[in-house]
């Protein structure tokens, strides 16, 4: 690692102030950033650790909306249980030790194209809360490792409307244990949303044809005959674009079956 200083602000205001320095970078749980720093692929002058920020901790539920602080770990979400599909998803991110450090704020801000949380946020129609504003998930996830966040903007919470039915199916990339393909299906009074992670070069995205079919008939059968194009899907040593396209359909069916 290159040398840098590390600061641990205790309040959001201090964190925001610290991050106004353009050479400063936010550090969530560090489970992605620290390995990146070890490879000397990033060279911040200052890391602002968000793990001590009180306002970003805690999970609360009100009016059918679950609000999870940006500094809440995957492990804490896993054991919360008030949005079961989300807790189940969290309980399969990385491994237990990673879950004890990695945070939801860090995950959505990083927007790894194979991460699990972005699928949950997008399918649930979540709202990403920052120190400056609230951003709908549909607008937040812009592309691979790209979000609507401005420089220095911090994800302070994610608000999840709890759906009537939901489920996440993850087909793991067996080495990293990220999603080779992950599909989150959420059914609300307004319809069904299907978000796919791991598959696309564009990052997390919705599968509108499946949403349409499932909004009419929330059953695995409704998906018969539907498939996604392999164009623009990720191809790597773990699977071709065609395989990923196939898995999207399989995982979507399984998510619907498990949710129903």
């Amino acid at each position: 690692m290159y040398a840098f200083d590390i600061e641990r602000p205790a309040t959001l205001a201090e964190a925001v102030a610290a991050l106004s320095n353009e050479d400063a970078q936010a550090l969530g749980g560090g489970q992605t950033l620290i390995p990146t720093l070890k490879q000397r692929l990033a060279s911040p002058e200052k890391l602002i650790s968000l793990t001590g920020v009180a306002e970003m901790k805690g999970i609360s539920s009100s009016g059918g909306v679950l609000t999870i602080g940006g500094g809440v770990t995957h492990g804490e979400v896993a054991s919360d249980g008030s949005y079961k599909a989300l807790s189940d998803l969290a309980s399969n991110i990385g491994d237990p030790a990673v879950r004890n450090r990695g945070t939801i704020g860090g995950s959505v801000a990083n927007n790894d194209p194979s991460a699990c949380y972005p699928a949950a946020a997008l399918a649930s129609g979540a709202t990403i809360v920052t120190n400056a504003r609230e951003i709908a998930a549909d607008d937040f996830f812009v592309g691979m490792f790209e979000t609507a966040l401005d420089e220095g903007e911090i994800v302070t919470a994610v608000k999840f409307p709890i759906p009537e039915k939901a489920n996440y199916q993850k087909f793991v990339q067996p080495a990293s244990r990220f999603a080779l393909v992950g599909v989150f299906v959420a059914k609300t009074a307004d319809g069904v949303r299907v978000a796919v992670t791991g598959a696309s070069n564009e990052g997390v995205h919705r599968w509108s044809a499946a949403e349409e079919a499932l909004s009419k008939d929330f059953s695995a059968k409704a998906l018969d005959g539907l498939s996604v194009s392999a164009d623009d899907l990720i191809a790597d040593l773990h699977g071709s674009a065609e395989y990923r396209a196939h898995l999207v359909a399989v995982m979507t069916k399984r998510a619907v079956e498990a949710a129903a």
Partner: peptide, 15 residues
């Protein structure tokens, strides 16, 4: 391409 445990698949306990 498989130069780390992010891509080289080591057997784990659940495999």
């Amino acid at each position: 391409l498989s130069a780390s445990y992010m891509d080289y698949v080591m057997p784990r306990a659940d495999d």
